[in-house]
Design a binder for these strands. Structure first.
Length: 565
RNA sequence: CGGGGCGUAGCGCAGUUUGGUUAGCGCGCCUGGUUCGGGACCAGGAGGUCGGUGGUUCGAAUCCACUCGCCCCGACCA
């Protein structure tokens, strides 16, 4: 392709709204353009990158015997109602009506549709196992799109589904995907860590996420550098830093603590460490049950863990509700004589002695409290792991880092096959629900995560495998070298390089800047001066190297660079 | 949904506090010329319902009300 004939609308200035590197550079480089909040157009360069990522995904999926299909994006409401997800997705699902007022939905994922397909055709254990996948547009009405293409409402996802007759079979299908995913991320130039994850709305038992560590990520992952334990903070477990502590307060008594509300303020006021204060948080179920949650003052409650332990979604009560219920401000409520349906305490509370709780009256706390004083229904691990907590596996010190989720794999089990009646007949003649797994990769996220991780202040640094072009031939003076360059351009193309030829009638500086912004891994610079000695210059985007190469050695040089990058 | 910020030419911004001719600047774009290894220079030119609606006023980009859109921070997910 000639640059002069390409549609590559690069910009010199950052778009006003773009704060993330990937957003800035993908827009500035002419890869994407915003249409609406969380909805983007892919311009030629962006489309090329996406197609290259998809190609790698297809190769790796096909390698594990998966077969590509394409399901509809526009789906009938019935199936969603059958599995209950018409409600549980709630406003995250784009719902619409047809002209007959029938409910439809734009699919946010495809477990239901895929399971129906399996139900229709996979009747016998002889038909199993199967792995089906598609690369398709998903629609999710995200409450908050973010970071350009990092989190959007319409996005391309590779999703696959495995159907097995046995649990061992599911393990195998899952393992195949795990390996395929590792290959895909490696080939697309991403370093990922695999973390234990919450299965959330998908349901099922085990699930793992593939994470790219990056400050721009909105997930947080706990990692043990010593033994490799890794988990999303939503499900991570650990031992608390200091376990057994007791305070100086020997006697239980009410203490006047005027307008000290937060844990820090109370700790300062009383002259004890925050860990000795037991925070009381009021949670409510959707049905209106009140659950008082106790946790050590230096920790936070993990709502996802809490909800799982409790068995239903819990949400923090509003300030107004707390005041009406306790007749005290949120900062002063406590477990003693609390009129709630249930009290759950985090395990971190177990080993405290003579601790401090809210007094259920404004401006008062109670010190010297012990577990016997409180009617705790159960203890559970409901706290969010902190940086520096102790690894349960090996005793190492845990780290906490931000990460971008680029893939997620689930062992679904029989959740969907049971509710939709997808059964097969086993060897013994018994009808059994098909055992399923589901597996997703965000194609656009691979692209965005790549830019987040691989960029500098000049622009993007693509890995060779998914770069929009592999080689950019930059002509310093098109009028003097056009014929020569055309020969070179044709040769590179015929040798299999994805090459663009910057033949524009503009200054050399502008061409260099554009090339660096767009992030083409290798530039071949053609200047009349160097041509006299039969040389061209090779520039490597990643390292900034400039190497003079004899014309006849160019192909060999490019091939060796291709392997490195 | 809560909190914060922003909408003025294709892009980035000034002007709004304190209302007052014809709404500015840079980049980009068009024409002509000169340049040609790090976003070139000179001359000329085109391009704007100031997000929208309604109000206040002799007069509104500027004040008021409503409204739409976008971004960022907190509860969800590839």
């Amino acid at each position: 392709m000639r640059w002069s004939q390409s549609f590559i609308p690069t910009r010199k200035e950052n778009p006003r709204e773009a704060e993330f590197a990937s957003h800035r550079y993908l827009v500035r480089g002419g890869f994407i353009e915003q249409h609406a909040s969380g909805v983007y157009t892919f311009l030629p360069l962006g489309r090329k990158v996406m197609l290259k990522i998809e190609k790698i995904i297809r190769e790796e999926m096909n390698r594990i015997g998966a077969q590509e299909v394409l399901l509809p994006a526009l789906t009938s409401a019935d199936v969603w109602k059958e599995t209950g997800r018409w409600e549980s997705f709630g406003p995250d699902m784009f719902k619409l009506k047809d002209r007959w007022e029938r409910d439809l939905a734009l699919a946010p994922t495809h477990e239901e549709i895929m399971t129906l397909l399996a139900k229709e055709h996979l009747k016998s254990y002889r038909d199993l196992p199967q792995i089906w996948y598609q690369i398709q547009t998903k629609f999710r009405d995200e409450p908050r799109p973010r970071g350009g293409i990092l989190r959007v409402r319409e996005f391309s996802m590779k999703d696959s589904y495995s159907f097995d007759a046995t649990w061992e079979g599911l393990d195998e299908s899952y393992e195949k995907h795990r390996q395929a995913y590792l290959n895909i991320f490696k080939r697309t130039g991403l370093e990922v860590i695999v973390v234990k994850a919450s299965s959330g709305l998908m349901g099922g038992s085990d699930s793992e996420e593939f994470m790219v560590l990056s400050p721009s990520g909105e997930d947080r992952v706990v990692h043990c550098p010593k033994c490799g334990y890794s988990a999303n903070v939503e499900v991570a477990v650990a031992r608390v830093g200091k376990e057994f502590i007791q305070s100086k307060f020997q006697r239980k008594e009410k203490v006047h603590t005027p307008s000290v509300r937060t844990v820090e303020e109370v700790a300062d006021f009383l002259g004890i460490e925050p860990a000795l204060i037991v925070k009381s948080l009021l949670y409510r179920t959707d049905e209106g049950r009140d659950v008082l949650v106790l946790i050590r003052g230096d920790y936070e409650v993990s709502e996802s863990k809490l909800s799982k332990v409790y068995g239903a979604d819990l949400h923090l009560a509003t300030r107004e509700y707390i005041i009406s219920k306790f007749n005290a401000e949120p900062g002063f409520i406590g477990p003693l004589d609390a009129d709630v349906d249930e009290i759950i305490a985090d395990e971190s509370v177990k080993n405290l002695t003579n601790f401090v709780v809210g007094g259920n009256r404004d401006d008062y706390h109670i010190v010297g409290v012990n577990l016997d004083d409180i009617k705790i229904k159960r203890f559970a691990d409901i706290r969010e792991v902190h940086e520096g907590d102790i690894c349960l596996e090996c005793g190492g010190e845990l780290t906490l880092q931000n990460a971008i989720e680029v893939g997620h794999i689930f062992k679904l089990g029989t959740k969907y096959s049971s509710s939709l009646g997808a059964q097969f007949t086993d060897k013994d003649g018994q009808k059994k629900p098909i055992i399923m797994g589901s597996y997703g990769i965000g194609v656009g996220r691979i692209m965005a995560a790549n830019v987040e991780v691989n960029h500098d202040d000049r622009g993007i640094i693509w890995p060779f495998a998914i770069a929009p072009y592999e080689v950019n031939i930059i002509e310093i003076d098109h009028r003097k070298t056009a014929d020569y360059t055309e020969g070179l351009y044709k040769e590179l193309k015929s040798k299999g390089f994805d090459v663009i030829w910057d033949d524009r009638d503009t200054s050399a500086g502008a061409k260099f800047k554009d090339s660096e912004l767009v992030g083409i891994p290798i530039s071949v610079v053609i200047s009349p001066r160097k041509l006299e000695s039969g040389e061209v210059e090779v520039q490597v985007r990643k390292t900034g190297e400039r190497i003079d190469v004899k014309r006849e050695e160019l192909i060999a040089k490019l091939r060796s660079l291709k392997k490195e990058l």
